[in-house]
Design a protein around this nucleic acid. Structure first.
Length: 449
RNA sequence: GCCGAUUUAGCUUAGCUGGUGGAGCGUGGGACUGUUAAUCCCAAGGUCGAGGGUUCGAACCCCUCAAUCGGCGCCA
């Protein structure tokens, strides 16, 4: 049973006047006791199939009446262009086979009323039935756009001869602060009967170890944060696109960040404009994000701007979301914020040799209130400086010994960034919540289905 | 960690001052030969989130718990 004919091609007019076999799922069905209209869907579109009792016989006609929503069927018939049908084409059926039926005692639960209540977003019911919600047209479009985003990231880095590199997901220590790690019980040892490891928060430290080998490396991998964040921007398991480059400066790394985000926007525009429009996204916005340069602003300038707007913010504070939001509300493209105060950032950020109270870092803030999508910068690369910064922070060095070692043998200036892939999907699709762009979202409360 | 809210049929919901819980969709049955979320008629479907309390009487008032949702902080 090889499927060669897809509804999208039928609606494009490639099979007009031909008798073909379509395979798909019943999206809707209506009609009388002599004629029925079965709206068939597959991964590429929908088409109306006209089923006449005269043409297929009484027995088949009764079967069609019993084919409830989401029954899978094979249907053979003549393809005609017809203005009466949605999409401009329809099939006049000559025979039908029900492949997978649906029991009327438990019909497909995602009903029009459930979808209408969600209003293009999600409800508790739809989250509970995520495994079935995936096959609705909205989620199908989201998943297809998500795939394009992943492909754009791979293509951006591979075209520039970056090597894809994998880090472990079980790790012994943290990248940042100690409080946001998921603990996992691990095989006990005699010395350590309560042995624990952690799910990784970032690929970065292990990438820095490979940096002297590969020089230009990247990944797309899950990261885990045990933050009880309840916002439209947070997941506990999210997909993290990270890169690391030897001999690179903060400006050069930002250029890659801008490059990959613009590549994502441009690939979406080129390959997924139908899906973007189907969920109500304005293509002109995406075109602007693909074609415009992303301005760079120093932290000091951002703080002055905020203070000028009457926002209560002091120099030295990290900029939280409430301040990002005020700052970005007038942005029409993403903006970089650079040169944060050293006291606001962890030890691995390199101190600016020209002005020691700053670090050479950047955040990329998305417009439309979607917040930070990239964080990166130059890394503290000399062993002496790294040890000094760990001491300054009072961080225990034992867990980082391998990281310190990487500096002891031919350390070089280098840096990289991490991009929140789901956040970028959420922003570019205009989703109301980051959950809408990932098949099975995990947050502080929900881990099922 | 903090603040706020919600929970009534498979789904979406109405339910006034405490007095025998209504509807739309879906499902089942019936009518209908070109429908566009088809339409029309009929039927089945409820421990009102769980437990306790107040009361002659609780979906409604009080307490505890649970699940979920929204937001803050933190971050991608």
């Amino acid at each position: 049973m090889v499927k060669t004919i897809f509804i999208g091609d039928v609606q494009a007019g490639k099979y007009d006047g031909q008798e073909v076999e379509l395979m798909g799922w019943v999206k809707r069905s209506r009609g009388s006791n002599k004629i029925r209209f079965v709206v068939l869907r597959d991964s590429t579109g929908v088409i109306q199939c006209v089923v006449k009792k005269d043409a297929i016989g009484e027995e088949s006609f009764e079967q069609v009446k019993g084919a409830l929503i989401e029954s899978s069927i094979k249907i053979t018939g003549m393809i005609n262009a017809d203005e009466r049908a949605d999409g401009g084409h329809e099939m006049v059926a000559s025979s039908i086979v029900i492949v997978g039926s649906v029991n009327p005692e438990h019909p497909f639960p995602i009903t029009e009323s459930a979808m209408k209540a969600a209003d293009g977003g999600e409800t508790e019911f739809l989250l509970d039935n995520r495994h079935l919600y995936l096959r609705t047209s909205r989620m199908t479009s989201m998943l297809q756009m998500r795939s394009t985003v992943f492909g754009a990231i791979h293509n951006y880095f591979r075209d520039l001869d970056f090597t894809e590199y994998q880090a472990p997901n079980f790790v012994a220590g943290a990248v940042e602060g100690g409080s946001t790690l998921f603990e996992v019980p691990y095989f006990p040892t005699e010395k350590n009967p309560e042995r624990k490891v952690y799910l990784t928060q970032s690929w970065q430290l292990y990438a820095e170890a490979a940096m002297p080998a590969l020089e230009r490396l990247y990944t797309i991998a899950p990261s885990f944060r045990a933050e009880k964040s309840r916002t439209r921007r947070h997941l506990t398991e999210f997909w993290h696109a990270e890169m690391e480059v030897a001999w690179a400066t903060n400006d050069e790394i930002m250029s890659h960040g801008e490059g990959v985000v613009r590549k994502i926007a441009s690939d979406l525009l080129e390959n997924r404009s139908t899906e973007l429009e189907s969920i109500g996204r304005d293509l002109e916005l995406i075109a602007r994000y693909a074609d415009s340069p992303y301005p760079r602003m120093r932290y000091d300038e951002a703080v002055e701007t905020l203070q000028g707007m009457g926002v209560d913010v002091e120099w030295g504070q990290d900029l939280d979301y409430s301040k990002e939001k005020v700052l970005t509300q007038d942005f029409d493209v993403p903006h970089f914020l650079t040169h944060y105060p050293k006291i606001a950032k962890p030890f691995y950020h390199r101190v600016d040799p020209d002005e020691e109270k700053y670090v050479l870092c950047h955040d990329l803030l998305a417009p439309e209130g979607y917040g930070e999508i990239i964080g990166g910068g130059e890394r503290t690369w000399s062993e002496a400086e790294l040890l000094a910064r760990l001491d300054e922070e009072g961080t225990d060095k034992a867990a980082y010994q391998f990281y310190i070692d990487t500096r002891s043998y031919g350390g070089v200036p280098h840096g990289g960034f991490g991009l929140g892939v789901d956040r970028v999907c959420s922003w570019l699709t205009g989703a109301d919540h980051i959950r809408e762009v990932i098949p099975f979202p995990r947050d502080s409360r929900r881990v099922s289905p």
